[in-house]
Computed example of a mutant assay.
Amino acid sequence: MPLYYLHIRNSDKLEVDPDGTELPDLDAAVVEALKVARELVGEVDDLGRDAVIEIADGSGETILTVPFSDAVRAH
């Protein structure tokens, strides 16, 4: 299974995911990123409006950015 890293960018700070997560594909990585974002929205007080999760592939290259705002939108 491919390895994906979910890095958290909040303003000028980057919290790097050092371990990554094995997931079947990019769609599963997006679902996981939204889940993490939902959890953090309730726990972290200083998340900026521009906070995102950067999904990186196994080589470390960012392949997609998921805004925290996507996690809190009504679907």
Rank of each mutant, 00 (worst) to 15 (best):
M1V: 04
P2Q: 08
P2V: 00
P2F: 01
L3I: 08
L3Q: 05
Y4E: 02
Y4W: 07
Y5F: 14
L6S: 00
L6E: 00
N10S: 02
K13Y: 12
L14C: 04
E15V: 07
E15A: 11
E15S: 07
P18L: 11
G20L: 02
T21S: 14
T21W: 07
P24E: 15
L26F: 05
D27G: 10
D27T: 13
A29H: 01
A29T: 00
V31S: 12
A33F: 00
K35Q: 14
V36A: 13
R38V: 02
L40H: 08
V41S: 11
G42Y: 08
E43G: 09
V44S: 06
D45T: 06
L47M: 06
G48V: 13
R49G: 11
R49L: 14
D50Y: 13
E54S: 08
I55Y: 01
D57R: 02
G60S: 09
G60F: 08
T62Q: 06
T62M: 06
T62P: 13
I63W: 09
I63V: 15
I63M: 14
I63G: 09
L64C: 01
T65C: 10
T65S: 13
P67T: 09
F68P: 15
S69T: 14
S69A: 13
A71H: 04
V72R: 08
R73A: 11
R73T: 07
A74F: 06
A74W: 08
H75E: 14
H75L: 12
